[in-house]
């Protein structure tokens, strides 16, 4: 039977590479958000210099996408056992349990723990993080695909979306891609809001700066 000890030890939770990727994504996301809002005239904000904003948006998106791929490579190489796609059903079940708890159901225990004897995490993440990470990644890819197709005006791809557009009652493929890009932005922002909130209330922001965190020791009793 696995149980948690009361004591905690400080361990390296996030490697330097992972942290660099994370903060690169955060920075470029903020740039993309501001320039994107101005370019899309959301909230009636307008870019003072459209071509400059578009250039900034484009080059930031390249760095943003690159950071996501580096992070994906890191996860595949180092943390696949926690973030593998097979864990998505577990993540969904955990999310369901959290929801029940939120509405007054039984408390859900934080499964994270570290085994100092083996020098590795028994469980590194809250299982919903698996869902969040893959949603982030899928959205980043959607934004990249739609954004670059629009930026480079890739006509064959745009025309390829025409039939889908008709089904979704959208005028044409071009308009659909713009809509998907915009919807993707809203969903991305919604996840970011939740993510930022969770980071604050779980007090883990420091570990993404220093890399270190006090973790519960988990061992067989």
């Amino acid at each position: 039977m696995k149980l948690y000890e009361e004591r905690k030890i400080e361990v390296l939770r996030h490697s330097a590479l992972y942290r660099i990727c994370h903060w690169t994504i955060v920075t470029t996301f903020l740039i993309l958000l501001v320039t994107g809002i101005c370019l899309g005239k959301i909230f009636n904000l307008k870019a003072p210099d459209k071509s400059l904003f578009l250039d900034i948006h484009f080059y930031s998106s390249i760095i943003f996408g690159f950071a996501w791929f580096v992070m994906l490579g890191y996860i595949i190489a180092k943390e696949w056992k926690f973030f593998s796609l097979k864990r998505i059903p577990y993540g969904i079940r955990f999310f369901g349990a959290e929801l029940k708890a939120w509405f007054g159901g039984p408390h859900v225990e934080d499964p994270r723990g570290y085994d100092p004897e083996k020098g590795e995490y028994v469980e590194k993440i809250i299982p919903t993080e698996v869902l969040v990470w893959w949603m982030y990644f899928a959205l980043a890819m959607l934004m990249g695909f739609t954004g670059l197709t629009l930026y480079f005006n890739l006509d064959s791809i745009i025309r390829g979306f025409d039939p889908v557009a008709r089904v979704l009652m959208v005028k044409d493929g071009y308009t659909l891609l713009r809509i998907l890009h915009r919807l993707g932005m809203f969903v991305f922002c919604a996840i970011v809001l939740t993510h930022v909130y969770a980071v604050i209330i779980f007090g883990v922001i420091k570990s993404m700066i220093t890399g270190k965190r006090f973790e519960k020791v988990k061992k067989e009793i």
Binding site: D49, L52, V170, K171, R178, R182, L183
Partner: peptide, 13 residues
């Protein structure tokens, strides 16, 4: 530089 094509109205379904 600030001139642009108009964006179609954005509705889906």
């Amino acid at each position: 530089s600030k001139a642009s094509l108009l964006s179609p109205e954005k509705t889906i379904l």
